[in-house]
């Protein structure tokens, strides 16, 4: 026996008629860019998670909630407009961090102590 089954198909059929797509849409200026920092748990630091565009701080915080905490990843959000972030220059990294290079004595492992010495 052969069963004939008709499948009902709805919507989204594809292009019915040519629609305008060629012409350029006008290139509007973006809203300012914000960097987002999230505290995942009480007692932890806020950590940079990414960035987004928003018209103002309030909107940036709300958008950050929608984008970066959809799965309860945070309990506190900081946003900072990206233009206010100042960063060290990676090209100068070698000389910039140089002062720490020869100061191994800042680490506890530098000191020669007998194994019998406990609780230190």
């Amino acid at each position: 026996m052969k069963i004939v089954i008709q499948i009902q198909r709805y919507g989204d059929y594809g292009d019915r008629e040519p629609v305008k797509a060629e012409g350029a849409t006008q290139n509007q200026a973006d809203w300012p860019l914000w960097e987002v920092f999230i505290r995942s748990k009480m007692g932890l630091d806020h950590k940079h998670v990414g960035s987004l565009h928003a018209a103002d701080a309030q909107m940036a915080i709300e958008n950050a909630r929608d984008v970066y905490t959809r799965r309860q990843e945070g309990i506190s959000i900081w946003v900072v407009e990206s233009k206010y972030i100042h960063a060290s220059n990676p090209d100068e990294a070698a000389s910039f961090y140089d002062p720490a290079n020869d100061k191994v004595y800042r680490h506890p492992t530098f000191y020669d102590l007998p194994d019998e010495l406990k609780a230190m």
Partner: peptide, 28 residues
């Protein structure tokens, strides 16, 4: 089968959202 429809939907959403973006900027 749907190239034009997809882009048209994007363009439409973008254009129809223009006033929202402008309003938010003006408000800020």
């Amino acid at each position: 089968p749907c190239n034009k429809e997809r882009i048209a939907a994007r363009v439409k959403a973008h254009e129809e959202g223009a006033w929202v973006r402008e309003a938010a900027t003006a408000f800020a």
